[in-house]
Design a protein around this nucleic acid. Structure first.
Lengths: 261, 261
DNA sequence: CAGTGGTCTAGACCACACT
DNA sequence: GTGTGGTCTAGACCACTGC
């Protein structure tokens, strides 16, 4: 093995058992896995600080540099946030800086600050059985209980976003329309504090569509107004899908912005 | 200063002149700037290898680790590509792996491989004076010469993308419809080899729109088919805008895919 | 002041590609 | 084998934060 010190029980020697693939994994990747595990089990919660690099180095019996590289990768994936002089923290959607990280709709003029926060209206919130399609997206079985939420977001009192979202019933047991309505702040922040579910990654499929009658009414749209259809699957740690969201965005005053580099 | 060796003339001491802001810049950032400069001046061209880490360390009089960190950042920005055992290479849009890095439209079923390459038809290609809007997007003055290209892309012989693009006249002197039509491969690869312009970053604004009559005809669309409007500004090194592109995408068989993490 | 992350170095060794 | 990037270590010092 590639470990210079007495083997740490935590540093799996699983690679040995494999035959055809050497499956060489650098030490810092293994450390990254161990840190990830502590995040998953909520040993360190969103917003909290994790142990210092020196402490982690001692805990895992590796050098500070190795821990450093592991943390660097997690930080570049927005799982951790480094703050010089203060420590390293578990990322959270409650942070003002990264609020609405996954919402790419921005006003044509001005920015999110000039516009202010959205007005939110919960239209519907109920439990139902997952259709085949929803089950597939959420890695559930058809018929499993899911929570459906339907809501409208308005900016400057203009209804702009209509969205339906589906959450797996088990992890979100106890979620109600009231709790959603009472909570001020990003929905993903509520998921973190109330249900221990942190979204780390999302994937969106975007199309141009014409709204049906019900959608037109909820958004108070004139006829023949095309909408952006945004289908999102959000994942927690371990690539587990935890939310399916179908959004319909007005794009006459706003646009979807995507920066690529 | 923070340099342990006889000062290298290349490592600017510009920070000294500033008064209010200390403007501390780590060594590896300065190295990164020097490498970037060599990329801008085409000392190393797309697809070529740059000197080894050891050579660069000697050239800049720093340790290998410092060069390494500079290269790491450039590689994570897709400006360089590291290949273990072979060397470090200047990124290029001709690489099969990263071809069409900025095209996010993918087929609903299958992937880009099952679909095969697009059929391309140049509809128009002419020089004209920049409108105020185009001039602003390309950081030119109104009335400056720009090159306009209009084309249609088809997949499986179904016209799917209609796009207009505008290029600044000076860097793209000598571009013709013929050269575009004759070139097989990504347009951005042609820009690299023929005009020394490498696109490193892009920004897109996306909306849902209804096509006008001309657009409907070019894409052979039934009436009332909404389209995705994708406005892209692409930048070279140094954040210089080099292309404005307005695309209209059919999204009944394809969708715009955006992965966030 | 002590504690944190951030930078820089020097040296050893490993994995991979070419020849 | 030689040369490349990739990993890991150990130690020194710098920059920032808060007591």
């Amino acid at each position: 093995m590639n470990h210079p010190l007495p083997p740490n029980e935590a540093l799996a020697t699983a690679a040995e058992s494999a035959v055809s693939t050497p499956a060489f994994s650098p030490l810092y990747q293994q450390i990254k896995g161990l840190i990830l595990q502590s995040l998953q089990t909520s040993e360190w919660k969103p917003g909290e600080s994790i142990p210092s690099e020196m402490e982690l180095a001692a805990r895992y019996r590796v050098s500070q540099g190795t821990v450093r590289k592991a943390i660097d990768e997690l930080a570049s994936g927005h799982l951790l946030i480094r703050k010089q002089g203060k420590g390293t923290f578990v990322a959270t959607h409650a942070e003002h800086q990264v609020q609405y990280r996954f919402l790419k709709l921005v006003p044509d003029q001005g920015d999110l600050n000039t516009e202010g926060p959205a007005q939110r209206e919960i239209v519907d919130c109920k439990r139902l059985r997952a259709t085949a399609e929803i089950a597939r997206a959420l890695a559930l079985r058809s018929g499993d209980t899911v929570l459906q939420v339907k809501r409208v977001l308005s900016f400057s009192n203009i209804p702009t976003i209509l969205e339906d979202l589906w959450l797996p019933g088990t992890p979100f047991k106890g979620m109600t329309a009231e709790r959603l309505a009472d909570y001020h702040g990003p929905m993903y922040a509520l998921f973190e504090t109330e249900f221990g579910v942190r979204m780390v990654r999302a994937q969106e499929k975007i199309r141009a569509v014409l709204p049906d009658k019900a959608q037109r009414e909820l958004l108070k749209l004139p006829p023949h107004t095309p909408l952006l259809s945004v289908e999102r699957i959000a994942y927690t740690y371990n690539d587990t899908p935890m939310e399916l969201r179908r959004g319909f965005y007005r794009t006459d005053t706003h646009h979807y912005r995507n920066d690529m580099n």
